[in-house]
Design a binder for these strands. Structure first.
Length: 576
RNA sequence: GCACCGAUAGCUCAACUGGAUAGAGCAACAGCCUUCUAAGUUGUAGGUUGAAGGUUCAAGUCCUUCUCGGUGUACCA
């Protein structure tokens, strides 16, 4: 038995009551909502929508339904509030159902078969390999991590992929700077994180280029050499690319970023050209006098879009639809999600329309999970000018802040302290970014942004450790059963109701690809726990039965807090 | 110019996708630690949801127009 059971039973009762009250009326579906807290109920049903068909006021309909309603045994009472009927479940039934479910399902509590094992391929991170990861990538990675976990929990079969943009003029800039200014240097012997080393070269090149315009020409020559497979150039490119990957892998590991598949633009950039010429023959694409190939998207509200240049080379979007087709062939997916910033909204609109025109029905199942830029108070981050918030540095700095504020309560060994500070700082960053809806841009103030009080990851983690602390002091053997009818306090009921909503929240987050739903949920649950904690005792209760019931309740809250944090890619520490 | 996105308390964000009196956090002020971790809790104050129309039983949410901010509109990626 689970929480859905209540909903289904209530709907059945409502349908029966409706048929009795209005025998001649067309049957309609009932929607059950979660009522506002002050109604002190578990489910609510509004009757506005029936009003027109029945030519009766919603209040009267509610009354008549109420008269004809046969209450299921788990129902304590039904109260009419205007056009609404509010249903209150017997606390004992609610508690037994919810708590048993949580304790049985444990780390799987919240999961459902909503996604029907549909195979979803998620592309995220996809950096340009000429510089270290910055705050923009951090948001991308965090959204990616979280959406992956949310979709998995909602019953999807999720695979992940990263497309490294590892070729092109930007890469050559770092390479040329290395060749010209730092030949034979090695970041390892210099003690510099290798991706930072390459990024510094990129910044240095941009500076030198301003004073010395011939460098622009040289870097273009280098790109041509690369495309011509010049041995020396390729070797340099490989050496520097590997430095970057080495650095990325450290950052990825720290953030919890993993991929099932990796693609490299250097290997995929020719994809799509063949498709383009085939589409040209079929008349889907058209050719201009200079030989360039185009698609006309003016009927779709877009422009004409170039897919092959006059010189026969392809462009970004060509590679992208080629790549999509390739992924469908090699990996296979029923749905594909691109986690990419909103400056590429237009690009993905065009991409999906091209795929559709090429005749791929699955184009409708491609989705651009677009997210807003992360901006600084001083404006946009520009890597060429070095005005970026570096991902590694950010994590280090926040960690230092956490360390300064620690050591107050619990005793920690040196390594424990470091590990805990790491968990808290990463949690603070993740929560800060994920609590905002992806669509919105984030203004990041380095001094003020990362907070450890109020609606933060730290707060949720702290609530978790407090529960852990109580359970630890209670002892090894936690009860699985108890007399749940003893859970009658308002704070206990609030916790039960919040627990019961978890699975529904996960579904909503999955539908909207929206981690902020989960962040809000975890905060609400933590907040409800804190209120309970402040007002009621557990361990020093004389009533053993009540103590057991509360221990079970707290165990369930602990599990659900941990699960919700996990959906955000945040770890739940045992003490802090 | 055109297209897309955003605008909610001083600041940062929510609001079950059209439902009940728009909720939290920060900052401010006033309380609560000999009691399970005070990174906590209680209270006060803070709103014409950018503006004006419209749709309907009901609009922060949908439609139109406008204002402000952002992004895109490249034979860059």
């Amino acid at each position: 038995m689970n929480v859905e059971f209540f909903k289904n039973e209530l709907k059945n009762s409502l349908v029966n009551a409706f048929t009795k009250a209005f025998p001649n009326a067309e049957k309609l579906d009932f929607s059950l909502e979660i009522p506002p807290e002050e109604q002190n109920s578990d489910f609510a049903c509004p009757f506005f929508i029936f009003s027109k068909q029945l030519k009766t006021s919603p209040n009267q309909i509610a009354s008549k339904i109420l008269e004809n309603l046969e209450k299921p045994i788990f129902l304590e009472e039904v109260l009419q509030a205007g056009a609404y009927l509010n249903f209150k479940i017997k606390t004992e039934s609610l508690a037994k159902t919810v708590l048993t479910q949580v304790l049985t399902e444990k780390e799987n509590y919240g999961s459902s078969d909503f996604g029907n094992k549909k195979k979803v391929l998620i592309e995220y991170s996809s950096p340009t390999t000429n510089k270290p990861l910055h705050l923009g990538h951090v948001r991308n990675n965090l959204i990616g991590i979280s959406v992956i976990r949310i979709l998995k929990m909602a019953g999807y079969d999720v695979k992940t992929i990263c497309l490294y943009n590892d070729r092109g003029i930007q890469i050559c800039k770092s390479m040329l700077a290395y060749q010209k200014f730092c030949q034979n240097e090695n970041p390892k012997t210099l003690g510099i994180k290798p991706d930072h080393y390459v990024g510094d070269l990129y910044v240095r090149f941009s500076k030198e280029e301003k004073e010395n315009p011939t460098l622009t020409k040289e870097v273009q020559e280098m790109l041509q050499k690369w495309e011509a497979d010049d041995k020396e150039t390729i070797e340099l490119w490989q050496k520097m690319s590997n430095w970057v990957y080495e650095g990325y892998n450290q950052t990825y590991k720290r953030m919890g970023v993993t991929f099932d598949y990796r693609q490299y633009e250097s290997e995929t950039y020719l994809l799509g050209k063949k498709i383009s010429y085939e589409a040209l023959e079929k008349g889907i694409f058209f050719q201009k006098e200079d030989g360039s190939v185009w698609i006309d998207l003016t009927n779709e509200g877009l422009d004409e879009k170039l897919v092959v240049r006059g010189d026969g080379t392809s462009v970004y979007i060509t590679q992208d639809f080629g790549n999509a087709v390739e992924r469908q062939k090699n990996i296979g997916f029923e749905k594909m999600v691109y986690v990419v910033g909103n400056e590429q909204d237009y690009h993905f609109q065009a991409l999906f329309k091209i795929l559709k025109k090429l005749g791929y029905a699955w184009a409708d199942e491609c989705f651009h999970l677009s997210y807003g830029m992360v901006e600084l108070p001083t404006g946009k981050m520009k890597s060429r000018e070095g005005t970026v918030v570096d991902a590694d540095l950010l994590m280090d700095e926040v960690k230092e802040l956490v360390k300064e504020g620690m050591q107050k309560t619990e005793k920690f060994s040196e390594t424990e302290l470091d590990q805990t500070a790491e968990i808290i700082s990463l949690g603070a960053i993740s929560f800060f970014i994920l609590k905002v809806h992806p669509n919105k841009r984030i203004l990041f103030n380095p001094q003020e942004s990362i907070d450890f009080q109020g609606m933060t990851g730290t707060y949720v983690q702290y609530s978790h450790t407090r529960i852990v602390s109580i359970l630890r002091k209670f002892g090894e053997n936690l009860p699985q059963e108890a007399d749940f009818s003893l859970l009658t306090e308002a704070e206990e009921i609030a916790l039960l109701r919040t627990l019961a909503n978890f699975s529904q929240t996960v579904k909503e987050a999955a539908i909207g690809f929206n981690p902020s739903k989960i962040a809000n949920y975890s905060y609400t649950l933590a907040k409800n726990f804190s209120k309970f904690y402040d007002k009621h005792s557990v361990l020093n209760l004389e009533n053993e039965e009540l103590k057991f019931a509360r221990i079970v309740l707290l165990e369930a809250v602990k599990i659900t807090l941990k699960n919700s944090l996990n959906l955000l890619g945040i770890k739940a520490p045992e003490k802090m």
